[in-house]
Simulated scan of single mutants.
Amino acid sequence: MAEAGRGSGKRPVGPRLEELLNELQTRINTVRGTRERVYNLLDAVLTVGRELDLSQVLRRIVETAVVLVDAEYGALGVISAERESLSEFLTVGMDDAQVARIGALPEGHGILGELIRHPEPLRLAEISDHPASYGFPAGHPPMHSFLGVPIRVRDEVFGNLYLTEKRGGAAFDAEDETVLATLAVAAGVAIENARLYEEARRRQRWLEANAEVTRALLSGDAEARALELIVSSAREILQADLGALALPIPGSDELQVVLAVGLEATAHRGLVLPRVGSFMGGGLRRS
């Protein structure tokens, strides 16, 4: 869907989680559909809450949303830090060839941007009838009906769920909107839980790395070995392509990269950089 016209295995409990769960219960009680649909909604709420890896949580949310409201296409857009565009866009319903034909992922214009600017549920029988719609890129499948809802985490909009093409040619109805809004509340709880879990895992990895470096120093390992361990551990924990260590060159205003680990490490070792105007020099001034 493109722009038409956002360690331990224990599950941490974050702030306001109980309040969010109460809201979720209230929304579930408003669904007046068949028993099967209510069951499917409850199952969906449990499903999105089982994952602890954030990327898997996001994928599971949009996959579940498509099934719940019987949509042919679905997407989840994550809103950027600037709050004006999309930084991530996960899709369901289009194969790799279709995605490749469409080209660059949407950034949040048109109907998609409408939910960024106005984070409230939006339901349309015909996308092209909305003033914010300005068409689809070449290679994009036709889409008519639309349903979008925001996902909030800690009272801040994290992203939006976008569903299009209700199967059978019908339009999305008010109950579809209620069901999707309920899933969005569950999604907010799951995203917050995954974030807390990842934060706990990251803290644990830093503690383990610190202990490993301490053991290396106490055991009499060479300084170079300890420094390499520090850089390697930091690169792994931060999931960086490259980790490098630069030291000041005595009697000059320059730095030299004495250690590099990861992508193109060989090309970076030995580089001489100015203290002023370089990324590493900037880091030294802030330390």
Rank of each mutant, 00 (worst) to 15 (best):
I191A: 03
I61L: 07
P250V: 05
L24N: 14
L271K: 13
G262D: 11
N29R: 14
V38L: 13
P131C: 05
E72N: 13
T47E: 15
H130L: 08
H118E: 15
G168C: 08
Y197N: 11
V62S: 01
D221T: 13
V157D: 06
S233K: 09
R286I: 09
Y134C: 10
A240D: 00
A184K: 10
N210V: 05
A184R: 07
F146N: 04
L122Q: 05
R11Y: 08
V57T: 13
E192D: 14
Q239E: 14
L90T: 01
A4E: 07
D95S: 06
V153S: 06
L24D: 03
S233V: 04
Q25T: 13
S232P: 09
R83N: 00
V276D: 15
E82S: 12
F172Q: 09
T266E: 15
I237Y: 03
S80V: 00
K166Y: 07
A186P: 01
L46P: 03
L24I: 08
I230L: 15
K166E: 04
D129L: 02
V38Q: 12
R6P: 12
D129Q: 11
R203L: 14
F172G: 00
L76F: 08
V257Y: 10
A44H: 10
L271T: 07
G270S: 02
I28E: 08
V231A: 08
I79S: 02
R37D: 03
R60W: 08
S80M: 03
L218S: 11
R205C: 04
G7A: 14
E63M: 06
R60K: 14
G148V: 00
L180W: 12
L247I: 04
L245I: 11
A222E: 15
L161N: 00
P121V: 06
E198H: 05
L86H: 04
I111A: 00
P250H: 00
A81S: 05
R27W: 03
P274K: 12
G262A: 03
D221E: 15
L207V: 13
R275D: 04
H140D: 06
L90K: 02
L147K: 12
Y73M: 02
R59M: 00
L161Y: 10
V99Q: 10
L163D: 08
R35N: 13
A75Q: 09
R11A: 11
V189Y: 03
P141W: 04
V258G: 12
L263V: 13
R50D: 15
N40A: 15
S133E: 05
A97F: 00
E165F: 10
I230F: 13
R101T: 07
V67I: 09
I230R: 08
R285G: 01
L271A: 14
P12Q: 00
